[in-house]
């Protein structure tokens, strides 16, 4: 889980071109959007595309839980693991 969180932090930095920010600056439980890291709706879409490409996972954009999946790195890691488990069934 920790390795995946570190990987996701780097993916966020690289994908969203967060110049001058390192993985250590992003707390796993801190909000990614709004008052947290300050990401916006375009970032969420961009991140979704990157996650699908890197982890071969399906993201249901109609899901009411989507906002909570993307709320923090911690939640995102849990979401990726759950989707990978679904893929392996």
């Amino acid at each position: 889980m920790e390795n995946l969180e570190a990987e996701l932090k780097q993916l966020i930095i690289d994908t969203l071109e967060l110049e001058g920010i390192s993985a250590a600056d992003i707390l796993s439980e801190a909000p990614l959007f709004g008052a947290g890291l300050g990401l916006d709706s375009i970032d969420a879409l961009e991140l979704g595309v990157a996650l699908k490409k890197k982890y071969q996972i399906h993201i249901d954009t109609d899901s009411v839980e989507l906002v909570s999946y993307f709320a923090s790195v911690e939640n995102l890691a849990g979401f990726v693991i759950s989707q990978q488990k679904k893929n392996s069934l």
């Binding site: 375009i42 970032d43 879409l45 961009e46 595309v49 699908k52 490409k53």
Partner: peptide
Amino acid sequence: EEASPSRFS
């Protein structure tokens, strides 16, 4: 390939 949303915007 899937288009980049930020590039698209």
